[in-house]
């Protein structure tokens, strides 16, 4: 038998070998050979997921000090800290992928500031009341759990391992959100009203969260590529249907009204019929033109700039210490 070194294979042979590994459900690791299309799909997916976790801390940040009891303060602090931790974990996974391209964390942050790097539609939206902290934790995190659980078996090993930990923590967040929601739903008429208004505010964004049914809606989509490489296993619509099946009965049970009079389960088709979200608006929002996009990106950008001296100082300190150590 003649053995051939992997480096001596043609690009096509390498690609075929890679696809065989994907078909066999093998996990791809950071240092493995991978086609550019796969690497780029991962970078797009993971950097956007990571930065969404970090930007996701901002709508809730407002409510961290304002939480109405000490226990709520403690639980929302823990929750938002977890989100930051997820962001950090994912950015590290992403850093390994962008390293061969000569890129680093600073490039990623700059892409965020210049709106080149997009984050989830929900984190561009306002969160003007305490009930938003409840709805975000219960339903936004609930939606995130569905998409993330779907990707647990992703072909990229480091992403799958990060997601495993993220999903464990997200399920606590959803419980935290459920508890906040329940308290408001069984509270005074003001509390109930605040909750209903928040649901009205978030409903369309929640449906949008999963992305459009097909690329026709917004002009482009990475779903097909992501399915081809087994980065994900379900379509946007399948996930949205799962979300509706899981949460519509729960929302109704709390005595809340879903702000879509056309919403119903079609027994024949075995699917939810709902009012289609405005995908033009979706595209506009994720491009960084949502109601809170500018403000939140500015908050990140200005603080990043404001603390530049600290990062320079740390770099200088470590440089000096390397010299001493050598």
């Amino acid at each position: 038998m003649v053995t051939v070194r992997f480096s001596e294979l043609t690009e096509e042979e390498k690609y075929n070998h890679f696809m065989e590994r994907i078909e066999n459900d093998e996990k791809i690791e950071a240092d493995d050979w991978m086609p550019d299309e796969y690497r780029n799909a991962l970078i797009k997916l993971i950097s956007s997921h990571g930065i969404s976790e970090i930007m996701g801390a901002l709508p809730e940040k407002e409510w961290v000090p304002k939480a109405p009891t000490i226990n709520r303060k403690l639980s929302i602090m823990a929750k938002v800290q977890d989100e930051m931790g997820h962001g950090q974990l994912l950015l590290r996974v992403n850093e390994d992928l962008i390293k061969p391209l000569g890129r680093n964390r600073e490039n990623v942050m700059n892409d965020l500031f210049t709106k080149k790097l997009k984050f989830h539609n929900v984190f561009h939206m306002p969160s003007p009341t305490w009930a938003d902290a409840a709805i975000i934790a219960w339903l936004v995190d609930g939606a995130a759990i569905l998409t993330q659980t779907m990707m647990l078996k992703t072909s990229y090993g480091p992403y799958g391992r990060a997601l495993k930990r993220i999903c464990q923590e997200e399920s606590f967040h959803a419980k935290h959100g459920e508890s906040l929601t329940l308290a408001l739903a069984s509270g005074t008429s003001n509390q109930k009203q605040m909750l209903q208004e928040s649901l009205n505010r978030w409903w369309e964004s929640l449906l949008m969260f999963f992305g459009p049914k097909s690329k026709k809606d917004i002009g482009s989509s990475s779903v097909d590529i992501n399915i081809k490489y087994k980065l994900r296993t379900k379509t946007n619509e399948q996930l949205r249907q799962e979300f509706l099946t899981k949460y519509v009965p729960k929302i109704k049970l709390l005595g809340l009204t879903i702000p879509d009079e056309t919403l119903r389960f079609d027994e024949e088709k075995e699917e939810w019929i709902y009012r289609e979200p405005d995908w033009k608006k979706f595209k506009q929002v994720v491009s960084g033109n949502g109601p809170k996009s500018e403000e939140r990106i500015a908050l990140r950008r200005d603080s990043y700039k404001n603390n530049e001296w600290v990062r320079n100082a740390l770099a200088a300190y470590h440089q000096k210490n390397r010299v001493f150590a050598g």
Binding site: A57, M77, Q81, M84
Partner: peptide
């Protein structure tokens, strides 16, 4: 906790918010 999301780097955001908690 007011520093949340504004710390010099993301690692510090995680560590600092744990301390505040």
């Amino acid at each position: 906790s007011e520093w949340l999301g504004l710390a010099p780097h993301i690692e510090e955001d995680v560590a600092f918010s744990s301390i505040n908690q």
